[in-house]
């Protein structure tokens, strides 16, 4: 499953799906596709994925259809009254928590990670963040909590596409030096090109890093 998913070309399908809804969050979804493919390919049964940047729901749905978990009809129902919700909600395949409001996913990930440590379980919690989302103060509250509790089962992936709603990230609210920020909060930082194969390879490497939360900054060139 993982091989074919990582290599699948889903951009056209995503564009087609969103062409009917004025390209709703198209950019956010396009740059999130590769990350989601890699994370879903890496996910063990017990692991949890949190799509904190809920705006990328369309990318997630396209992947679910590729996996046979949603039909073509489902994709066409996007944002219809009885169809797929515009931002992910609890109850969809893989989705443990609703999102759409930015900045909350990392805290939720910490809660799940702390509970699994308490139970002595092996469980990775992957949380996908937007770079614009990092403006939210709660992200940095949560980043402190992850490192305070040495949550090496928390893996954050930042979709570093250098864009947020109304412009370029460095013009709206500068993020750089982004890696240094995470590092100073006690995280192990990795940077990688936003390509599914490369992210997947790195995700396997990360399992060997213990004692610290880990963040991948996935750069869209």
């Amino acid at each position: 499953m993982s091989e074919s998913l990582v290599r699948s070309a889903l951009n056209d399908k995503l564009k087609e799906m969103l062409s009917e809804v004025n390209n709703f969050h198209l950019n956010s979804s396009i740059t999130c596709l590769e990350i989601l493919k890699a994370v879903i390919a890496k996910k063990r049964e017990n692991d949890v994925i949190i799509l904190s940047k809920g705006h990328s729901a369309p990318a997630f749905y396209v992947i679910l259809s590729e996996l046979g978990l949603l039909s073509e009809e489902d994709l066409k129902s996007f944002a219809n009254l009885d169809g797929l919700p515009s931002h992910v909600i609890r109850g969809l395949p893989f989705i443990e928590v609703s999102s759409g409001s930015l900045g909350q996913g990392l805290s939720v990930a910490n809660g799940i990670a702390l509970a699994s440590k308490l139970e002595g379980e092996e469980k990775n919690v992957y949380v996908i963040l937007g770079d614009g989302e990092l403006d939210e103060g709660q992200i940095w509250e949560a980043a402190m909590t992850s490192s305070h509790y040495k949550l090496d089962n928390v893996i954050a992936i930042v979709d570093r596409n250098f864009k947020q709603l109304t412009g370029k990230t460095e013009e709206i609210m500068s993020k750089e030096p982004l890696g240094e920020k995470w590092k100073s909060f006690g995280w192990e930082v990795f940077e990688v090109e936003n390509k599914a194969e490369k992210i997947l390879e790195l995700l396997f490497e990360l399992d060997k890093v213990k004692g610290k939360p880990k963040v991948i900054i996935a750069k869209w060139e």
């Binding site: 443990e96 805290s107 809660g111 509970a115 709660q138 509250e141 949560a142 402190m144 909590t145």
Partner: peptide, 23 residues
């Protein structure tokens, strides 16, 4: 017992994570 610090927003969302995990 989990000390989250002076950050009520993080406190609530972390609690949500615990609830999702069955606590």
């Amino acid at each position: 017992f989990f000390q989250i610090g002076i950050s009520e927003q993080d406190l609530i969302s972390t609690a949500a994570g615990f609830a999702i995990a069955g606590k």
